[in-house]
Amino acid sequence: MQVQALIDSAVAEVGKVLLGKEPQIRLALCCLIARGHLLIEDLPGMGKTTLSHALADVLGLSWKRVQFTSDLLPADILGVSVYNRNDASFSFHPGPIFTQLLLADEINRTTPRTQSALLEAMAEHQVTIEGETRPLPEPFFVIATQNPIHQSGTYPLPESQLDRFLMRLELGYPHPHAEREMFQRRRPNGNERVVLEQRISIEQLERVRALVAEVYESTNLLDYLQRLVAYTRTAAEFAVGLSPRGALALLDCARTWAVMHNRGNVVPEDLQMVLPAVAAHRLVPSGDYAGDGAALVELMRRNVDVIRA
């Protein structure tokens, strides 16, 4: 199977509605193939919803959206049991979480209690309501969006919960060319949504995942990964280094990235490509270091030698 061609066509399809964001689309796909959940952090109006909706279309997944507000309760996401007078019993009304792709919009605006209900479901792929455990549909993805935390009225996700997201992406402003193209395409014809074609079937997704499981990593590569991780734990700029879970996430994404580029083995470039998206939100700079997570990732990339001397 030509995985690269498949992925390229999917990326091109998403690119129709989200112009000039090919790297982010690719990373988002990588995250979904690697069974991870995605966190998109950006200002309002940058295309976060568009991206998630487009991904659902391209993968042919059912799609629901929850707008998180400060008064949202766990039951509003998970569902409630309602008393049915006709047969005198309770019947369960599933919440919006029972879908294949859930867009959790502005997750940092709700209370920690509701956040953790969602995050638990993300980790377990099941929800337990009134003592009954209900599995979530497969595949199950969450794309959460988050406003930059310095905006008021937010409950920033703690580090431990950020760790549950395999990747964090920033979309950023579009490229001037892409933005001009977007202006040209704009036709004020109501709120009609462009429906995209499905490009990857569930079966194809499963086959790609099977390929990922067979990817080969050489000792040299694992060694490089280990040195990258060890660096975050010893260098002075890091207050919190990468956990073993973070390291495994890095490896999973690199493997997926390799498959997405038709390779049967992981090369250092794969690790370096997924590094910012996977590692940046898991790293905490030490008190006297001015940079943020992205700067720390750049430090890792620059200072850890790819080849063991």
Partner: peptide, 9 residues
């Protein structure tokens, strides 16, 4: 070669 530079780069 910079430390973080891969063979391909």
């Amino acid at each position: 070669r910079a430390p973080g530079e891969t063979a391909g780069e």
